[in-house]
Design a binder for these strands. Structure first.
Length: 586
DNA sequence: GAGTTTGAAACT
DNA sequence: CAGTTTCAAACTC
């Protein structure tokens, strides 16, 4: 925050990683990348640091083998694949190398170094345990990119509450979301909000948590989470990370990963979805929520903060709260227990639906939902028209997985989704034929843009994973504009098309914008990416901006893009960070 | 702000 | 796995 100057002094040891910060900026950077991966690595490194940092550093994650399994099975190569997409931009090859290198080398590299050079996170300076969170976040943010937005977001508050996962998610989100649980937040054109969460994770709902609608909310959110999003996100609560995974896999069902999926949005990012204090609530932005737990001690999923992967803050009205850094061990143990029962418990609740993606890509009129709730809702009386419905809350349409009755979800009805699913298959088949024809006619890569890409790459019908439109929306325009983050920025840029969608302002029936809601966790993660929008999907990453049910919402231009984004978001898995764990930050 | 409604989470 | 209870958010007044 303020301490930018402080940060430097505080970190005596940090070997100056001098050059890192600028590589992207300079055109030379690209050139260098092409020449040798090494430098690029550093640059990338920053981004990765987030990822790498978030996971390793976070005790929770470490304990979360669950995710990895999930990843491995469904998307073993996921990371790589996802990355490749970013390459899309100009230097695909270079980008990829960088990413890979980063992963490989990053561990060895002192996190602090990487980060410090680029951005001087005031937070990093902070040594306090409580601040640790912030620090991490800050680091992440900084590292993630030099995103100005992030820095602004961090504004200072973040440190307190952010969980590790948040960082990951947040980064992006703060880049995003989510949320989340950190969640992500979609920022429609108008709203610059992004999710604290959460990443939201996942939003979860946490992700749900909601994204911030307003910039103000952002600030607030920052207090708790850097990102989400935990969403977690998103979305991209917390969660955000998990959500991300989910998104990446495109198989929602694999629950284990966490909501991160989109960080994830929901979040999340717990990510996503950060919850802010009261202010958030006041604003009406869901993004940063605070809980009001009376009996759960904030150690159950009933608690939005806990679910989002974030610690409760003073703004919370909870009683006997154990969801604080002071009780980290308790929190972690509890979290592990819950995860043991349900590996996906902290994952973003909203995941991308390949079908939906394809839909969006082609038909703007169809249900906007690019994402679906992981488990589906079970609404009986609300007709999926109120926030009681997690699908609605997450800004996604109901799916066949829902057991709701009288579904009238504006984002997509259960029955519609079913139809869509069948339609999509048919469409895909038709597309294949078309594609073949097109290929014969022309070699242009355009074909790949939407339809082909998925089929070709993944396989016959592989569902494309597209960024949830909500994520896109969640991203603040500012973010979009800014691409401070090295890697993320690159990837996101690639996704530009997807970003475009963000432009369309989502319509919300209620005062609360869906984006807000979503972003919780999931969003958190996603938000940061801004342009990419997707980053944080984490988990938490619910959709922030819901398109009007009718179809105003634009489909993402290319599924590919979304995919890429999703992958990125993955890293931002929401988890509680140890307040103490400043290790990496340092 | 208090009370009610709702549906997820947790429990049995 | 199904049914019930608990819980806290969402909602209403």
């Amino acid at each position: 925050m303020d301490s930018t100057p402080k940060t430097k002094p505080t970190k005596p040891p940090p070997p100056p990683p001098p050059p890192l910060s600028k590589f992207e900026d300079s055109p030379v950077f690209n050139f260098i990348n092409s020449l040798s991966p090494i430098k690029p690595v550093k640059s990338v490194h920053t981004v990765q640091t987030f990822n790498s940092i978030s996971f390793p550093s976070l005790p929770v994650f470490t304990s979360l083998p669950q995710f990895s399994p999930l990843k491995s099975p469904k998307r073993p190569n996921f990371s790589n694949a996802s990355r490749s997409p970013p390459a899309v931009s100009k230097n695909k090859g270079a980008v990829i190398l960088m990413d890979q290198l980063l992963e490989i080398f990053v561990p060895g590299i002192p996190p602090g170094d990487d980060l410090t050079p680029r951005v001087q996170p005031p937070e990093m300076v902070n040594s306090g345990a409580g601040e640790a969170y912030g620090v991490k976040n800050g680091d992440v943010l900084n590292s993630t990119t030099e995103n100005k937005p992030l820095s602004s977001l961090q504004g200072g508050n973040m440190p307190r509450r952010c969980l590790d996962f948040e960082m990951a998610g947040m980064l992006l989100p703060a880049a995003a979301a989510a949320p989340g649980d950190g969640s992500i937040r979609g920022s429609s054109s108008s709203s610059s909000s992004f999710r604290c969460t959460l990443p939201r994770i996942g939003l979860h709902l946490n992700d749900l948590a909601s994204s911030l609608k307003h910039s103000d909310s952002e600030n607030l959110c920052s207090e708790r989470r850097p990102g989400f999003s935990s969403s977690s996100a998103a979305i991209f609560t917390s969660n955000s990370i998990q959500d991300q995974f989910l998104f990446a896999s495109s198989t929602p069902e694999s629950e284990n990963p966490q909501e991160p999926a989109s960080l994830i949005g929901e979040d999340f990012n717990q990510i996503n979805p950060i919850k802010n204090g009261k202010s958030m609530e006041v604003t009406g932005n869901g993004a940063c929520k605070r809980c009001n737990c009376k009996k759960s001690r904030c150690l159950k999923l009933y608690c939005e903060c806990f679910a989002a992967g974030v610690y409760c803050i003073e703004a919370c009205s909870c009683l006997d709260c154990f969801n604080k850094p002071i009780h980290e061990s308790v929190v972690l143990d509890t979290r592990r227990q819950i995860e043991s029962r349900n590996p996906l418990a902290f994952a973003p609740k909203v995941i991308l639906n390949s079908d939906s993606v394809s839909e969006l890509g082609e038909d703007s009129n169809k249900t906007p939902a690019s994402a679906r709730h992981k488990r589906g809702c079970n609404c009986k009386k609300s007709n999926c028209l109120k926030k009681y419905c997690e699908c609605y809350q997450g800004g996604v349409g109901c799916s066949i997985n829902c057991r709701c009755e009288g579904c009238k979800n504006g984002f997509g009805r259960k029955d519609e989704s079913a139809l869509i699913g069948t339609e999509t298959q048919q469409e895909e088949e038709g597309r294949e034929h078309c594609q073949k024809n097109a290929e014969a006619q022309s070699d242009e890569g355009q074909q790949n843009s939407i339809n082909t890409a998925p089929s070709t790459q993944l396989g016959p019908r592989r569902s494309l994973i597209s960024l949830p439109f909500h994520l896109k929306r969640r991203l603040p325009s500012s973010y979009l504009d800014d691409e401070s983050s090295s890697r993320l920025s690159v990837r996101f840029k690639l996704d530009e098309q997807g970003i475009i969608q963000t432009e369309a302002p989502p319509k919300f029936e209620k005062t609360t914008t869906p984006c807000e809601d979503v972003m919780p966790e999931t969003v958190s993660n996603e938000c940061p990416s801004g342009t990419g929008g997707v980053k944080n999907v984490s988990p938490n990453s619910k959709r922030v901006g819901l398109p009007p049910p009718q179809g105003d919402f634009r489909p993402l231009p290319s599924t590919r893009i979304s995919r890429k984004l999703i992958l990125q978001s993955i890293p931002s898995f929401p988890s509680f960070t140890n307040p103490n764990s400043n290790e990496w930050t340092q």
